[in-house]
Design a binder for these strands. Structure first.
Length: 460
RNA sequence: GGCGAGUUAGCAAAGCGGUUAUGCAGUGGACUGCAACUCCAUAUAGACCGGUUCGACUCCGGUACUCGCCUCCA
């Protein structure tokens, strides 16, 4: 029985999709004006695990992850670069796809861009105006009348009166109330624009998700996810827009990933303390980065550090080492073990990946012991390790390839050295054998003697 | 100030009202020519103060501290 923590109700709930056997999920994606950082990676990987697991449970999942391809930051950056905003966004979308692919994130079923849904957004804005939830004061902007919507604050736990205190109205704005937010933004000189009943302009940020969610998944859908900082105001505003316009519950289950921190502070663009996925991938294998991201529960904050990445590498290495040399082709996974059962129990408890990994390590110890009793049972256990790892998006690489990766050493030379050591050992010249091993170790190559001979890997 | 989350062994990170989380690191041992891998054993926990209970890391209350949101941010 799958349970998911719902931000809206602040508790774990038994998950029950609207249509039996189907899950419709929308996750807020990227604003494409720069490279993705590790915080983005966490959202990508967390919801990738959710998708993989739901599919493994037999649900037909429709996963939509939008792209914000027009907004103030994009326009600003494009101007700084002296390029059109579309040139910038196209480039960044390609970079994002590259990064997410490296991290083993499966592509979503749909990836709608804001600029492709301008008409739908305008329709929704018109509806909101008709119903009295929005107004166009005549300066080219359209605003949402926050006080008109009863449920405002229900997701983030905000109280209107308290929000009021800090709210301000910008100089060019004509809001009735400081809390009102923009649905349509009149274009200034030189800015990209679309024609509209309220003048040339572009959509506000929040309306795109309301419009695209409706178009891609319907007026009410099962899961809406995103990063921790989107809870307010973004998701709160989405609820206000969609529920006012459609007159229906927007989303049943709201899921938010935890923040990625650096030195115990949130990693964010505004603090400037972020690491891009790109730069982290230069130092660590992508699967290690992914392992790091799933090594704590998706809602917990996670601290980015060299140490934690290093440890993720060592841990993943242990898992791969267990699979090393096993021929899993066509091998049916061992069924009926408590490991499999406990792994699923962990995942069904709000996608508890650290606990699931704990079970995987116990299974691996069992497998390592089973190897001594012959290949057959070990392979079946290995197939189970690989199957369960697949639900997390790890352990699908060739173990040998993983263990040998990350070094910059000529394999022919290594094999030559191994032969040299073998000869020295045969001649009982252990000093020479050790010298050869140390020479390899100096290059990061670690030798492992097995019954079948000597293998090697790159030391982490 | 308002709202929310958290504080677990050297480090990371889970579950659980009574019985080993798990991984890394440490210690002892097996294996090995010696190592590595692997296996076995083992020490080190539950911020603080109260309460409930036969029994609390786990439930309740309070205190301290940390973090997040309240402004663009995944």
């Amino acid at each position: 029985m799958l349970q998911i923590y719902n931000t809206l109700t602040r508790k774990k709930e038994v998950f029950k999709p609207i249509h039996e056997g189907e899950v419709r999920m929308y996750v807020c994606g990227m604003t494409v004006y720069d490279l993705c950082h590790i915080g983005h990676a966490r959202v990508l990987v967390s919801f990738d695990v959710v998708t993989r697991y739901l599919r493994a449970k037999g649900y037909k999942v429709t996963y939509v992850r939008n792209i914000t391809d027009v907004d103030d930051k994009i326009i600003k950056r494009a101007n700084e670069n002296g390029e059109t905003f579309t040139a910038l966004t196209e480039r960044m979308i390609a970079e994002m796809h590259k990064d997410s692919g490296e991290l083993g994130v499966l592509p979503p079923d749909a990836e709608p861009k804001a600029t492709a849904y301008i008409a739908e957004m305008q329709d929704m804005i018109s509806t909101l105006i008709e119903k009295g939830y929005a107004y166009a004061p005549g300066n080219g902007d359209v605003y949402y009348r926050v006080h008109k919507f009863d449920g405002y604050g229900k997701l983030s736990g905000k109280i209107l009166e308290e929000l009021q205190a800090g709210a301000r109205i910008g100089v060019d704005e004509m809001k009735e109330d400081p809390l009102d937010f923009v649905l349509w933004k009149g274009a200034k000189e030189g800015e990209p624009y679309w024609e509209s009943p309220w003048g040339n302009g572009r959509p506000g940020w929040h309306i795109e998700c309301s419009a695209m969610g409706k178009c891609c998944l319907g007026e009410t859908f099962d899961i809406h996810g995103g990063g921790p900082d989107l809870k307010f105001p973004h998701h709160e505003n989405e609820i206000a827009q969609s529920e006012a316009a459609n007159g229906k519950t927007f989303v049943n289950t709201w899921m938010h990933a935890g923040a990625v921190r650096v030195d115990n502070e949130k990693m964010s663009k505004s603090l400037g303390n972020f690491f891009t996925i790109r730069e982290v991938l230069e130092k660590y294998p992508a699967e290690v980065v992914r392992y790091f991201l799933i090594s704590s529960q998706y809602r917990s904050p996670i601290n980015y550090s060299e140490d934690s990445l290093k440890e993720a590498g060592v841990r993943l290495e242990r898992l791969y080492t267990a699979l090393e040399g096993l021929n899993l082709d066509g091998v049916e996974p061992e069924r009926g073990t408590s490991y499999e059962e406990r792994f699923h129990a962990a995942m069904e408890d709000d996608f508890n990946t650290p606990e699931a990994l704990g079970v995987l390590f116990e299974l691996v110890r069992h497998l390592n012991k089973a190897r001594k009793d012959g290949e057959a049972n070990a392979a079946a256990l290995g197939a189970l390790v690989k199957e369960l790892g697949g639900l997390l998006g790890i352990l699908q690489d060739n173990p040998d390839a993983f263990l040998k990766s990350g070094g910059d050493v000529d394999e022919a030379w290594i094999l030559e050295m191994i032969e040299k050591r073998k000869a020295a050992k045969a001649a009982k010249d252990f000093a020479e054998a050790d010298r050869v091993r140390e020479e390899l170790a100096a290059q990061g190559v670690q030798l492992k003697d097995t019954r079948e001979g000597t293998t090697w890997q790159i030391e982490r």
